[in-house]
Computed example of a mutant assay.
Amino acid sequence: MSTTMSTTTPNPSLVIRTVAPNITTFSVPFLRYNKFKFGGRATLVRLATGSLAIFSPIPLSPDVSSTISNLGGNLRYIVAPDIEHHMQLGPYKTAYPTATVIGPEGLREKRAKQGDQDVPFDYEFTRANKHELKLPEELAREFEIEYWDGHSNKELVFLHKPSRTLIEADLLFNLPAREQYSKTGEDPTKGVFNKLMLHFTNTKPGHKGQQRFIWYAMMRDKASFDESAKRVAAWNFDRIIPCHGDVIETGGNEVFRRLFAWHL
């Protein structure tokens, strides 16, 4: 573990919450395309061994750093769950140089093209190896993983088996981002652009907007996408932690099956 402290200034809008035993979320406001109030979220999981894994890391502010320290400080895994949620890999790898980095194919090349800090990937999931590449043993004891290579963002989706929690990035959204904007004084539902985006990113029963968004905007390979959907639907989960929007505290499998019904 590195003794390097946090790399950014405090974030007064950060919401830190214990969602379940051994699961902590860091929720922040975030504007997509500088218009849509999407919100952002990192998820920190403490394994039975005491090691920590962070998914979709947000900026390493003093509060994030101290939370990691208070949970033992052994941040052993840094996960970029798709080709969009990777911006903070460099700062985390610098602060925790012995951590194992996990991500999907294409991200290494994207980061190089953008001039991002070079971060070696220890586990890189690809279309060819997705069923053969195994997680490190201590992670595999507590997590299932499915690589959605048929998804436009190349999603890595995780099931934390002890808490029956699905951890994902852009597989599905649950807007409005009420928790993520709760300290800002801003209403995440207000504004023309937000109202438009909410049509495609809510999880209300009977509403087809997000179903259509997934079908037309997020699916690149239907056969592979359908296969991944069926695998995840078979998992035993109740909670869903998305990167964008509120945590689905219960009934997550039902929500998933409704949104991905056309793929099941």
Rank of each mutant, 00 (worst) to 15 (best):
I102E: 06
G115D: 06
R141T: 12
I102P: 01
E137M: 09
P104E: 02
E137A: 15
Y123L: 15
E124D: 07
F121K: 01
E144C: 10
I102F: 03
E138V: 05
G106H: 03
N129V: 00
N129W: 00
L107R: 04
L139W: 10
T126W: 00
Y147A: 01
H151Y: 08
A112K: 14
D122A: 13
E137V: 14
V119M: 02
A140P: 03
K134R: 15
E146P: 04
E132Y: 11
Y147I: 01
K130W: 06
R108K: 15
P104G: 02
D118C: 09
V119W: 02
F143M: 10
Q117Y: 06
G103A: 12
E138I: 07
A128E: 15
K134Q: 15
P136A: 05
I145V: 13
S152N: 14
H131M: 13
E109I: 07
N129M: 02
Q114T: 08
E137G: 08
G106V: 04
L107D: 05
D116G: 01
E137W: 09
A140M: 07
S152I: 15
R108S: 15
P120E: 04
H131Q: 12
P120Y: 04
R141L: 12
D149H: 13
E124K: 05
E144G: 02
K110L: 15
F143C: 07
G115S: 07
H151W: 06
F143E: 05
G150N: 11
L139Y: 08
K134A: 14
H131E: 14
L107K: 04
E137D: 14
E146T: 14
L139V: 05
K113G: 08
R141W: 07
H131L: 13
L135S: 09
R108D: 10
D116I: 00
Y147N: 02
D116N: 13
A140G: 09
D149P: 04
T126V: 00
T126D: 00
F121C: 02
G106R: 06
D149Q: 05
G115E: 03
G106I: 02
V119R: 02
E146H: 12
G103W: 01
D122M: 03
K110E: 12
R108P: 00
A112C: 04
D149G: 09
F143I: 07
L139A: 08
I145P: 04
K110Q: 12
D118I: 15
D116S: 12
K110D: 10
E132C: 06
E146D: 13
Q117W: 01
E132S: 15
Q117F: 07
E142L: 10
K110N: 08
E142M: 05
R127M: 09
Q114A: 15
Y147F: 15
L133C: 03
F143D: 07
P120C: 03
E124L: 14
P104T: 02
H151D: 11
E105I: 03
F125L: 10
Y123G: 02
A128G: 00
R141C: 06
K110R: 14
R111Y: 03
R127L: 09
